[in-house]
């Protein structure tokens, strides 16, 4: 499979000029935080040699929005999440800050999520809602709603620049296998798998879109097209819907497993949250 992929890539490169490849820009945020946007693929990723951040496939204009936090439109939502972190909600009369002194103590968390906790695969959204329910006695937030994704972005920001390093062995293994199988399943009437576009054809144009490798290390991502923060599961839902398939629900076990598998494909890239995309 790997050999075939290499041959395909070689043939492709020899026919086509390198115009479609990821560009050579490097990403340093606020003149300070150097992000890894290109590195050797993790060993379990048998069909790719090098992994690239989605940032490398975007136009200069879009890239620029992520280089300085003053220009990053996602930061408005990060600020809102700081307020939410300090706001009492629920019947227990608690805010996040009542137990967690500072959001900075979550540094590193997003780099190792999703994670199996007490035998169950947990992603950040379910972690947050569990705390809201069990500790604060507060209503759960909607998965892809502004409050939830702002909080996921704020917590993710604490790990920005740290390498993605999810665990895929031990208890995580069956979830990882499930996610991997989904990644290679050709869904819908168009019979497209994630791999068809993001592994076999990254770097090429599909109509007006420049296909990336589909890493999720910048999520929640501010998507210019939708002018808001987009959750990972919302993006998964959109992709599967666009194969003319019956999609899965946000927060479903299937999408959690896919999220773990996708994170494992990004091992070695750095957390970019909150990224900006087209």
């Amino acid at each position: 499979m790997k050999k075939l992929a290499i041959i395909t890539v070689t043939v492709f490169l020899s026919i086509k000029a390198a115009s479609a490849d990821p560009d050579n820009d490097s990403l340093i945020i606020n003149d300070d935080i150097q992000l890894v946007t290109e590195t050797a693929a993790p060993i379990h990723l048998e069909n790719l040699d090098t992994i690239y951040s989605g940032w490398r496939f975007r136009t200069d204009e879009t890239q620029a929005l992520q280089v300085d936090d003053f220009d990053n439109p996602a930061m408005v939502f990060v600020d809102k999440a700081i307020d939410l972190f300090n706001t009492i909600d629920g019947i227990e009369g608690k805010a996040c800050v009542s137990c967690h002194e500072s959001v900075a103590q979550f540094r590193g968390l997003s780099a190792i999520m999703p994670k199996v906790i007490d035998g169950e695969l947990v992603v950040l959204e379910s972690f947050i809602n569990d705390h809201r329910d069990q500790v604060m006695g507060a209503e759960p937030w909607k998965w892809s709603g502004e409050k939830m994704q702002s909080m996921v972005a704020l917590i993710g920001l604490q790990s920005r620049g740290m390498p993605v390093n999810v665990k895929i062995d031990g208890e995580a293994r069956p979830y990882w296998e499930q996610g991997k199988e989904m990644y290679y399943t050709r869904f819908g009437q168009l019979q497209l798998s994630c791999a068809n576009c993001h592994e076999d054809n990254y770097g090429k144009m599909i109509r007006a879109d420049h296909l990336s490798q589909g890493h999720a290390n910048g999520f929640p991502t501010y998507r210019l097209k939708q002018a808001k923060l987009i959750s990972r599961h919302n993006r998964f839902r959109g992709c599967i819907r666009d194969t003319r398939a019956e999609t899965f629900a946000e927060g479903s076990d299937e999408f959690k497993a896919l999220e773990l598998y996708l994170a494992s494909r990004s091992i070695g890239l750095t957390v970019e949250t909150p990224a900006v995309r087209q």
Binding site: G188, R237, T247
Partner: peptide, 24 residues
Amino acid sequence: TIMPAFYKTTGFIRLGDAYTGKAH
């Protein structure tokens, strides 16, 4: 091939109702 089959009606996984994301 990645190319969709344009004249085929069976053998799909989780066939949806066009681009609605709902089951067909």
